[in-house]
């Protein structure tokens, strides 16, 4: 089941990426997809300031009815949150390399 979902999302992505096709629903969906990622990043104590800024911009644009911007910023927020999660995961192992010996 899971791989199918992943493929569907992957197929949907390029369409969603084109801001021209953004609708109220697609922008809201992207914001809804970004939020849980930000929560995970925060719980790992590694939220990036540009992530928070991008989500804020997305929500502001959504309120103004600028769904193309809302969608693009939400996608950026999610991407940055995922990158910070990856960083936090890697650092759980890598931090010891920075300790002077």
């Amino acid at each position: 089941m899971k791989p199918i979902v992943a493929i569907l999302i992957a197929l949907a992505l390029p369409a969603a990426a084109s801001a021209a096709g953004a609708t109220k629903a697609s922008a809201a969906r992207e914001i809804a997809l970004a939020k849980p990622k930000l929560r995970v990043a925060a719980s790992m104590n590694d939220q990036w300031t540009p992530t928070v800024a991008a989500l804020k911009q997305a929500e502001t644009a959504e309120r103004k009815g600028d769904f193309a911007t809302a969608q693009a910023k939400a996608m950026r927020a999610r991407k940055l949150a995922e990158l910070s999660i990856a960083q936090a995961m890697q650092q759980k192992k890598l931090w010891v390399n920075e300790v002077p010996r």
Binding site: R76, K79, L80, L83, Q87, L94, N97
Partner: peptide, 13 residues
């Protein structure tokens, strides 16, 4: 180079 201080400008967008 894992020890570098240079930020990953592309990877981290």
């Amino acid at each position: 180079n894992p020890r570098t201080l240079m930020p990953p400008f592309g990877r981290n967008a």
